[in-house]
């Protein structure tokens, strides 16, 4: 690789948005993931996908926790993510068992099919 190309690439990468990744960048990614999860949870009607979207929200929160832990040089963030993983696993086991149960009952994964449960 010639020095010229090297220099140009480095000059290109030195442009301000690429120059330095801060906590802000990670939090924006995390917030975007959380919002995508919310949008998916509200719009999709398939119950499995709705639960998948809650996992997406877990992911957003986990990224924020790890980023904050890195910011303050503290490992509590990673420990919290371990607990989030635990809850996600428990939720997956229970929710998916429920989903299969409901599917056997109605033959449909549509969340609207269970609208009569509304109080």
């Amino acid at each position: 690789m010639s020095g010229l190309v090297d220099m140009n690439l480095n000059a290109l990468l030195a442009v301000s948005p690429l120059a330095d990744v801060t906590l802000y960048h990670y939090l924006v990614v995390s917030a975007a993931m959380f919002s995508l999860g919310i949008i998916g949870f509200l719009t999709r009607r398939n119950m499995i996908i709705m639960f998948l979207c809650t996992e997406l929200m877990f992911q957003g929160v986990g990224l924020a926790l790890i980023a904050f832990g890195r910011r303050w040089m503290d490992h509590s963030g990673e420990v919290f993510v371990i607990f989030v993983l635990t809850i996600a696993a428990a939720e997956a086991a229970l929710a998916l068992a429920l989903v299969v149960l409901l599917y056997r009952k109605k033959g449909s994964l549509d969340a609207q099919a269970w609208a009569q449960l509304r109080g």
Binding site: F34, S35, L36, I39, L42, T43, N46, I49, D110
Partner: peptide, 20 residues
């Protein structure tokens, strides 16, 4: 399935998501 192909309230929920 029809419940996979058609979204529910896409405009409102996208608005809510971007609000968040």
């Amino acid at each position: 399935e029809e419940y996979d192909a058609v979204a529910r309230e896409p405009i409102v929920s996208t608005f809510a998501g971007f609000l968040v």
